[in-house]
Every structure is written in structure tokens, then in C-alpha cells.
Simulated assay, not measured.
Amino acid sequence: MLFNYSSIAIIILSQIIQTLTLLEDAKLFFTDLSSKYGHPAEKYDVTTEDGYILTLYRLPGKSKLPVLLMHGLFSTADSWILRGNTSLPITLANSGYDVWIGNCRGNTYSRKHIHISPNSRKFWNFTFHELAIYDLRAVIDKVLKETGAKKLNAIGHSLGNTIFYVLGSTVPEYNEKLNLLIALSPICYLHNVPSPVKNILDLAPFFKELRKQNYVDKVFGPGLIKQLLEKICANPVYGYIICVETLLFPLTGFNREELGPDFLPILISHFPSSSSLKNLLHLAQVYNRRKFAKYDYGFSKNFLLYNSTKPPLYDLGKVKMRIALISAKNDRLSTLKDVEILRGRLTNIVSDLVMPLDKFNHVDYIWGERTNLYLHPYILSELKMYS
């Protein structure tokens, strides 16, 4: 048998370069990553009506309609770009789109306020409701002002879709500012989530008491727990088994083919980021009450805030923006049964795709190694069709 030593050398060299790239990317953050992959980002500060200062990034392009990307729970703008050349922002920028990537309050890039310190309990007094009616509104207005466009296209992942439903139902005039929302893992209802997701949501009373008695207001903020998690996950022997196969996959769906051990060093340096415990509690209420509604403060405060003893439902019939739903069989956070409930409530669904890959899970939309091959072409097609 003859060995092609030059081919073997090329393969080994390619693997070494890939490993070095991943190790370097673990130390880089959004502006450095975007520059490395050919699209230096512009940075904007966006101040919300209630005083939070958010970081918004732009990869400039020539498209008539800008495209806004909004991240999910415990994520940042980084989550979109961690796959480098094959990430969605770079794919869109390479195709000529004017790409904007938002950051919601409380995460690594948006931990500022004009008056309140992030060390204050008051800073963390928010849920996805505030992310919608303050953060998303301010970001949309900033993008439209800077570009001069009348409308924009949007792509959300996970909770990054939920805030569009809340905004469209609560401030209906913003439906007119959205040309198309491409909803990746369109979380809204949580009726059918499996264990261990449901077990975590069942702990809502414990989380509420923890927040009340021990003044715990944020999750995954800078500190001991975050440092310990990074140390454990960085271990080359057991890090992947503990952090991905034991902790992440049971929540999101198992798919080692798309998120292997080599990607873990870059992932753990950027995820998870911080959010409020109250945000998690609000999601638990959606699960426990089986209603997509505003935050439940209890009998007395509900009456003061809502003029009702129960929090009002978000009226999804008012969400008039065009929406393309993209879901997956192996997504344990946005299950097909829950997407079916959402589908029955929305009034302007223009496209509805279930990913044809059986193992495709909740995080493959943004971190899948080959997502650029089987998801990005569909996204580009939808943007072209409706723009």
C-alpha cells in the first residue's frame, strides 16, 4: 500500500491550524472576532427609556433593509459569531447585508445604567418584558435612525424571539417597523418541555424565595460560580463530559456531531453570560401557569399594576409582523408541540420549517459546526424572498 504523505501532512497541518484558531478565538470578543473574519464591527451605545445603556454592533453592508440579530437567554452578541467564517453574521455580511447585532440589559456588553450600579438590586429588576418594551424598542429605533430605513429584517434565537412577540403585542405600532422576523427556535409557550428542563422550572418557588431572602438577583454574573464553571469546563479530560454531555445537552438536546470537544474552549469563554433571576422566574411562570402573560407579582401588586388580580395575557393576535418559524425535533427548550401552540396564535406566519435533521438541537442554530451548510441557505432565501 502506498501512503500519500503530502496529503497526510496537509490534513495534520489543517487540524493544527484549526485548533490554534479555536484557542485564539476563546480569548477574543466581538469586535476582535468580527475583524479577524473580515468585517470590522462598528460599536454603538443605545440608551433605553428607563436608563440602561446597551451595546449594539454593526457589520456594515449595502442591503436596503438592515438585518438585526437578537440573542437568547444567558447569551450575548458573541454567541452569533463563535463559529467564525461559518457563523451567521459573517455569512450575512459576506452576502452584502447590513448586519446589526444587539445585546440585552445585564449581559457582558450591557451592564451599564445612567444612574444605577449593576451592584444594585434595582439594576436586576427586569424580565423579558422589559427586554422587549425597552431594550428591543431602543435597538430597533437606533438601527432605523442610523440607516434611514423604514423597516428592518430580524433574526432571533430562543428568547430573542420571545421579545418580538411581546413587543408586537404590547406596542403594536412596532409591527410596522418589522419586515420579517426569522424565528430560530421560537420559544413562547413551555407546556411540553421534558425533564430536566421542567424540573428546573418547577423550582420557581425556591428561586423566588432565594431572591427574596438572600438577595440573589442575577444568574451567571461575574464571581465564584462563573469562575468555577470555566475551570471545570476547561479541563481537557472531563470538561466536555461534565459541561456539555451532563449539563448542556440534557437541556438543549444531544448532538455531539455539531458541538464536539474542540469547540468547548471557545464556548465556555463566552457563555453563559449574566441575566436576572427574575427573568428566569418569569419563564417559570409561563411554564407553571401555562399562559404567555406578564409577570405575576401576586394578588395585591397585580391589582395595583394591572388593575386585575391576575397578570394580563400577551395578545399574540396583535403580532402582525411577518414571521418565518424554524423549529427542530430534538430541541428540548422549544418543542414541536409548543411551537404548534404558538403557530395557532400567530396571524402572519409566512414560512414554517422543521429542520430535517433528527439530531438538530436548540443550540445548533448558532453553534452547529455545519449549520452554515443546512440552515444559512434557507435564511438567505427567506431574506431574499421577502426583501
Rank of each mutant, 00 (worst) to 15 (best):
Q15H: 11
I114S: 15
K384A: 15
R289M: 05
G61T: 10
N85G: 15
I366F: 04
I268K: 09
F3P: 12
R370M: 10
S95K: 14
S387H: 09
T55S: 12
T48H: 00
A234Y: 04
S75Y: 01
L228G: 12
Y134F: 13
V363N: 07
E382W: 09
D45K: 15
G96F: 08
Q227N: 15
D50T: 05
S158T: 00
F74Y: 10
L283D: 13
Y240L: 09
S87N: 11
Y97M: 08
Y306C: 02
S35G: 10
C188N: 10
A9Y: 09
E146S: 15
K43I: 12
L316A: 02
D262H: 12
T55D: 09
G317M: 03
K150D: 15
L325Y: 07
R290D: 04
K291V: 00
G168T: 01
T347F: 13
L357Y: 11
P66M: 13
L184G: 06
I366W: 04
L13Y: 09
P222H: 12
L33Y: 09
E258L: 13
I81M: 15
V143R: 02
L2M: 15
L68Q: 06
N348R: 05
D135P: 00
A149K: 06
V139Q: 11
N85C: 10
L2T: 10
N161K: 03
K212C: 07
P236V: 08
L280F: 09
L28I: 10
L247W: 14
T55G: 02
N103A: 07
N235M: 04
K212R: 11
G223W: 05
L203I: 01
Y189I: 06
N288R: 03
Y52C: 06
V166S: 01
I81G: 13
I12H: 07
K145Q: 15
E173L: 14
V46P: 01
Y189P: 01
T86F: 03
T127W: 00
N255K: 03
N125H: 07
P60G: 02
L224P: 08
E258Y: 09
W100L: 02
W80I: 01
S6L: 14
L247C: 08
L373K: 15
T127N: 07
I268D: 03
R105K: 05
K36L: 14
E146M: 13
I182K: 00
L54A: 06
L248I: 13
R289T: 04
N361D: 11
H113T: 01
I10Q: 08
L136V: 07
P265Y: 05
N4R: 11
L281K: 03
L251P: 11
L33D: 01
I81Q: 06
Y240R: 09
Y297S: 03
R370Y: 14
I349Q: 07
N214C: 11
N107Y: 06
S274M: 01
S79G: 14
N199P: 13
P118W: 00
A26L: 12
E24M: 14
F254C: 03
L152G: 05
I155W: 01
S327R: 06
G156T: 10
R370A: 08
P312N: 02
R345D: 11
M355Q: 09
E146A: 05
I155K: 01
C188V: 15
M321K: 02
K310C: 08
E340V: 13
